[in-house]
């Protein structure tokens, strides 16, 4: 009887536990549901559909008409234009990430000394945050204008030959990189300034007592201390760079000679200008996989050096 009682008691306890568990689960589901539904509708469903389209020949109306398995992928990997676009994208992303992070850090370092006018310069350097992509692009269009632009006026004053920024193969990609770096600078600058402000002053005081060089201080104190922010800025800039569209569309349309034809722009052209949804879907999936790979690589390679407190 004793045994039976304990067993019954056990069952009751188990039952209430189960009920409790179920309740918790239901509540959790309720909380998750809104974002699950939104992610499902706006992220996962389109993703699955994109994979689906990438395995079809599609007609001009974007309807899948013939299942062709993975041959879209095969064609794409043999496509010279796509390969060139891929290479361009990698150069672009690498340069944008590097230049943005380095120049934002340099500017943040310069303004981290509390001198007269620092606030003014900080405001200037952060101000590109408030500029939209289209405004920035138009601004740079005026600068790059080959006959009446500011850049050539300056070069002319220095007795240098004019540079055809947007129409010369050798300069066009750099011109777009410059525009994007300029745009990204504001945010990265602000984030790094914040990080620099948070480095504990006693660390520097100790270093001063030890009498180490400025470079030593930067490399062994500042850099490790701001590494989480630096890592964050680098990752965000990289992902943004992969998705750059507006500047390319407004400045070069991917030209001249496809020299600024980033993959995102090629996807847009294939889907909405060339009306080839199958090809565009295939390119999108390849791009998604590449971004995932690069992000993983970045985490594996650089996160070890990040010092979280």
């Amino acid at each position: 009887m004793d045994h039976a009682f304990s067993s019954a008691n056990h069952a009751v306890v188990k039952h209430t536990q189960l009920q409790q568990k179920l309740k918790t689960h239901l509540a959790a589901m309720g909380f998750i549901a809104p974002s699950a539904i939104f992610l499902g509708v706006f992220v996962f469903y389109p993703l699955v559909k994109t994979v689906y389209y990438s395995m079809f020949l599609t007609n001009a109306l974007g309807q899948p008409v013939k299942f062709i398995g993975l041959s879209n992928y095969g064609t794409l990997l043999q496509d010279k234009f796509f390969m060139k676009s891929l290479l361009t994208t990698f150069i672009f992303v690498f340069m944008v990430t590097l230049l943005t992070t380095v120049s934002a850090l340099a500017l943040a370092m310069v303004t981290s000394k509390h001198l007269k006018g620092t606030t003014l310069f900080r405001t200037f350097f952060a101000s590109t945050m408030g500029v939209s992509v289209s405004v920035a692009s138009v601004l740079w269009l005026f600068i790059f204008q080959p006959t009446t632009g500011v850049s050539d006026m300056v070069l002319n004053l220095l007795h240098l030959p004019p540079i055809h920024w947007l129409t010369d193969n050798t300069w066009s990609l750099f011109a777009v990189i410059l525009t994007v770096v300029w745009m990204n600078l504001g945010f990265s600058f602000l984030a790094l300034t914040g990080a620099l402000e948070n480095v504990a002053t006693p660390l520097y005081e100790v270093a001063d007592i030890e009498g180490v060089t400025t470079w030593h201080k930067f490399y062994h104190i500042t850099l490790p201390q701001i590494s989480p922010t630096l890592f964050f800025v680098g990752t965000v800039t990289m992902i943004n760079a992969f998705q750059t569209f507006g500047q390319v569309d407004l400045l070069t349309k991917g030209g001249p000679n496809n020299s600024t034809n980033l993959i995102v722009y090629q996807i847009y052209k294939d889907a909405f200008v060339n009306l080839n949804v199958g090809k565009a879907s295939t390119e999108s999936i390849v791009l998604a996989l590449l971004i995932a790979l690069v992000t993983i690589a970045q985490f594996k390679l650089t996160e070890k050096r990040v010092m979280y407190q």
Partner: peptide
């Protein structure tokens, strides 16, 4: 010959240059 590339900017730039008497 002067090249303005292709696309909308080329159109805008050649027109600007033409109106400025440079083309």
């Amino acid at each position: 010959f002067v090249s303005y590339g292709s696309g909308d900017i080329a159109e805008a730039n050649q027109q600007t240059a033409f109106l400025a008497g440079k083309l």
